[in-house]
Amino acid sequence: MSTEPPLYLRVADELRARIESGELLPGTRLPSVSEISAQYGGSNPIATGAYKVLVDDGLVVSRHGAGHYVRSNETPELLVRRHRRRSEDSPFAQGAAEQGAVGTWRHESTTETATASVAGRLDLEPGEPVMHTSYTYLADERPVQIAESWEPLAVTGRSLIALPEVGPYAGIGVAARMRVIGIEVGDPVEKVRARLAARQEAQGLGMTPPGPVLAIERTYYDQATGRPVETADVVMRGDRWVAEYGQAPHGG
């Protein structure tokens, strides 16, 4: 009778050794379930079993639809927000990972009719249908940012990107999703101001008592037509974020 441990435990042990040795750094996105299955010649339950062990051990964080990440032992005190136009991954997840944190988020999407305010920002008539998505973004499972996003269903409604966080293009960010339907958006237009968090915002961000936030009104435009294709209200903890714009030239 063989005493060799099950394959899923051996896979977990190999990944654990790579994490504990520092080969896989905090924030690193780990191989997908299908990649693990192909590498070890097993089935998907082998990979999911291995990741469950690592999640239970506190070494890995799982984000539905976005994969598994090496957990950081210490979230950076200050997170830097940069624009990532060409990224095919979530800009938030990628940026957090580069700073040693695991970026995840919760979301809820509903079809609504555009209010006068949202319609004005999206160049629609009030009452036209939009997809409204509410987000809570977390760094190492601690809330650091919330957002309300609206997209005109006249643009996305007949495509696979209509639901931002469902389907084959879930979780890849606005620019990459719009590229799927042939729209290049470039950098968004943003209006940024500092203020105190409203009570509901403070609750969502875990701020007790309410403190300062960066409030950003963001709109993406189709570069070919000038049409707005997404607008959002983003609220970031003022004590956890610094926003960085532009890029220094490379030395000759």
Rank of each mutant, 00 (worst) to 15 (best):
V234E: 07
V174E: 00
F92C: 03
H68M: 10
E108W: 04
G206N: 11
R227S: 15
A194R: 13
P31D: 00
P5G: 08
Y135G: 15
E112P: 01
A197C: 11
S149D: 04
P164H: 04
L205P: 01
W105T: 09
S87K: 03
R237M: 08
S43Y: 14
M1V: 06
E128G: 15
G186I: 15
G157I: 09
Q203C: 11
A119C: 13
T3E: 09
A139S: 11
Y245K: 08
P210K: 15
V234S: 01
E23C: 09
T219R: 06
S43D: 14
S134T: 07
N44M: 10
T104I: 09
Q203M: 08
S2V: 12
S72H: 00
P168V: 15
A198M: 12
R227C: 07
G206Q: 05
S159Q: 14
L54H: 03
K191M: 13
T156E: 05
V70A: 05
A66W: 08
S90D: 02
A139K: 01
Q200Y: 08
G120Q: 15
R240M: 13
K52D: 12
R177M: 04
T115P: 10
G251R: 08
Q200I: 15
K52Y: 13
P91R: 03
A114F: 08
D233M: 05
V53A: 06
A47L: 03
T156M: 03
D222S: 07
D140C: 04
R193M: 14
E35R: 07
I183L: 02
H64E: 07
L196Y: 10
M178R: 11
L153S: 12
P91E: 09
I146N: 00
T48D: 07
V102P: 06
R240T: 05
E74P: 12
H68P: 15
A224Y: 06
T208Y: 05
G127V: 12
L163Q: 04
L30T: 03
E128Y: 07
L138D: 09
M236A: 07
E244F: 08
S37A: 14
A232H: 01
P210Q: 14
V130A: 03
D187S: 11
H83V: 06
R18G: 02
V118P: 06
L59C: 04
P126C: 02
E98N: 05
W241N: 00
Y40K: 12
Q223W: 08
G251P: 05
P45T: 09
T136L: 10
V80G: 09
G206L: 13
S34V: 11
N73R: 11
Q145W: 13
D239T: 09
P143E: 10
P228C: 06
Q94K: 10
S90F: 04
T113N: 10
V155W: 08
S72Y: 00
P249T: 00
P26E: 01
P212C: 05
L214K: 06
G27E: 02
V80T: 12
G42M: 14
S37Q: 05
